[in-house]
Design a protein around this nucleic acid. Structure first.
Lengths: 119, 119
DNA sequence: CCGGCTATTTATAACGT
DNA sequence: TACGTTATAAATAGCCG
């Protein structure tokens, strides 16, 4: 929308990029909320700004509540029609990777080498 | 938009509600993707349909990747304390459970006892 | 239930302050 | 750098098949 048709590629000018992010972020949160209200559904949105700041939206309860609902639905995350061997092996690899990451982060936290995760 | 201005409340007619969900879901995924591309950022979207079906979108990597980034960010918009031992152990247990479930489902699928995952 | 088809409403790109 | 303004691109409500 707007004066000119926008090309769908990264906006190179950092100022314009940040401004566009700010505007569109607000709009998409609004859209998410409309979807949740109109259709009486649960919606969650997670967005990182170009500078790394997180904006989250959840139509009901905390973002974690919805994330937990998602995590507790193995095999359905991406609405795969009929799961096949490739899907299962990829999914298992993904879960293994995540477990390793969690363990690494836990270890680092124990050692107090970090107190927060940065970009 | 559309022929009439829409009132922001739950659509009572279930057919209309489902149709509206379907259309708007697609649009918001498109918007999320535009935001990610234009602004070179990470975005994740989680939406449950009126019938409970999940649609997820992630601009980069898996939805879990972005959820992990969110969970591991103390002091951001939705605030969460620094991850502690309990969180890590619970998360690991969850991942282990998921892996086991995926393996079970894979085995069942191999045996052709089921052909798709249902709610 | 899934796609088209407009009339209208919204969102927003480019400017302006 | 953050807000308004406006012309124009997009999204979409109500219908139809």
């Amino acid at each position: 929308m707007g004066r000119n048709k926008l090309v769908m590629k990264k906006i190179e000018n950092s100022t314009s990029r940040q401004q566009t992010y700010s505007k569109r972020k607000d709009s998409i949160v609004k859209k998410a909320n409309e979807l949740a209200v109109l259709c009486d559904t649960d919606v969650a949105l997670l967005m990182f700004s170009p500078t790394g700041q997180l904006t989250s939206y959840s139509s009901r309860g905390s973002v974690e509540d919805i994330m937990l609902r998602v995590v507790n639905r193995p095999g359905e995350l991406h609405r795969r029609p009929i799961p096949n061997e490739q899907y299962f092996s990829q999914r298992l690899a993904q879960l293994k990777y995540e477990s390793e990451m969690v363990e690494k982060i836990a270890m680092l936290t124990r050692r107090s080498l970090i107190s927060s995760i940065k970009d």
